[in-house]
Amino acid sequence: DNTYNPIYFYVPRRHISYRDRVLIVDDLVESVEELLENIENPVKQLAVELSYPQWFVEVFVHRLGIGETRELLEGLNEEKWWIRVNTLKADVDTIAEKLYEKGVVVRRDKDLDYMLEVIDYNEPLHHLDEMWRGEIVFQDKASAMVVEALQPSENDRILDLAAAPGIKASLIMQLTENKARLVLVDVSWERTRRMLRLLKLYGVDMSRVDIVVADSRDWRPRTTFDKVLLDAPCTSSGTIGKDPAVKIHLEDNSWVTRFPQLQHDLLRAALLADTDAIVYATCSLLPSEGEEHFKKLKHMLREPPIPGSPGYPDYNISRFVKRFFPHKHSTQGFFIASLAKNNP
């Protein structure tokens, strides 16, 4: 059988001595190199080398070529950390100084002044007191760009159709200094409870927030909204650096293929809402969870007012949407589209 499937091992480092770790790495390198020598197909070779399903690699080779696909997947394998300073509770410069004193070296982002890129750190970041006090939020820059694309303003009525865990909702309130009004919908009661705790921790004015536990595909609001946010459930294929287990899920075709239909149904619900402005996003690199949904909605698309790259070039809507890539932007992989229902 000439089929090669990636194999994933997890052994906690604390259970392996340094000497044994070196020996294991040496053995693995030798065995992987031997394996790669027997593979003639360059796509299959890349899939095995970087531990991705072959079909996943083929998606990007078709659109980006083998060279850039390698850069993309190598970048995707790397863990990247971003910190959002919660300006409802803290000052950016003060936080940066405190982090430096604790051995966390950060670089202030050129696009978003409240975002800090983590360059180096000595201790686990989740041990930081600033996180537990709600002064900082671990949020990827590309995720923050989803909210920036929405352009929230004071007194905006904003509907979030897949709101939990509430990270983007809290950023909306941060950018509007707690002066927007939010309706947050999520299907999970447990996730909604956790969202409520987080929003309170982050200093969100809960008198300006309504929370609904419902399936957004069926729930219909009875009021109008200035803007709608749909950060849709997805394969999370753009977050592999933080969660390598996503690679295992990508081997399950039934799991991968369930998301586009769910996203289609949620997008339909967003289009039925009484609003003009909609932002759709997924933390996925797959065009089936991004560009494919908008081939028939080109007349509604307007280019999001954010940096980033265009969509994949084989789609005629590519210049109207934005993508973030780990090898280009040092972020997770994201797709972002902005729609105006009354776009001229």
Rank of each mutant, 00 (worst) to 15 (best):
M115F: 10
V118L: 02
A163Y: 06
A214T: 13
I172Q: 01
Y121P: 05
K200T: 15
D113G: 04
L196T: 10
D215V: 14
V183K: 12
L230G: 11
R220K: 15
L128G: 04
V209T: 13
V228H: 06
L112W: 04
G134H: 09
R193A: 03
L171G: 04
H127F: 08
R191D: 03
M131N: 11
P152C: 04
A149H: 05
S188E: 03
L184I: 03
W189C: 00
I172T: 02
A142C: 10
L201F: 07
Y114T: 14
P233Q: 14
T223W: 10
Q139E: 12
V147W: 09
T223D: 12
S188C: 05
R222A: 12
L161R: 12
V187P: 05
L116T: 08
G166S: 07
L199R: 00
E177W: 10
L125C: 06
D215K: 13
V228K: 07
E123R: 11
A144N: 01
G134P: 06
L196Y: 09
L150R: 06
D160H: 02
A180K: 00
G203M: 05
L198S: 12
T224Q: 15
I167Y: 13
A149F: 07
S153C: 02
P165H: 01
V185R: 07
V146K: 03
D218K: 15
V228I: 11
K179D: 04
I119Q: 11
E117C: 02
S207A: 03
L128V: 05
N122E: 00
V212A: 02
A142P: 11
P233C: 12
H127L: 03
R191H: 13
R208D: 08
C234E: 09
L196K: 02
L171W: 04
D210E: 15
F138H: 05
C234N: 10
H126E: 15
G203E: 07
K141E: 05
M145R: 02
S216A: 15
A144H: 00
M115W: 04
Y202A: 11
H127T: 09
P233E: 14
V213R: 07
A163S: 15
A163T: 04
M131T: 04
I136H: 01
R208T: 06
E154W: 03
T192A: 00
E135Q: 09
R157M: 00
A180D: 08
P152S: 08
I136A: 04
E123T: 08
V209Q: 11
A144F: 00
L201R: 15
D129H: 04
H127Q: 11
E177S: 13
L159V: 01
R194V: 07
A180R: 00
G166C: 01
T235H: 07
V228L: 09
D113T: 07
F225G: 13
M206N: 02
I119H: 01
T176R: 03
F138R: 04
R157N: 07
A169G: 07
E190Q: 15
E177K: 14
H127E: 09
I167R: 13
C234T: 04
P165N: 01
I119E: 12
S207G: 09
V187C: 10
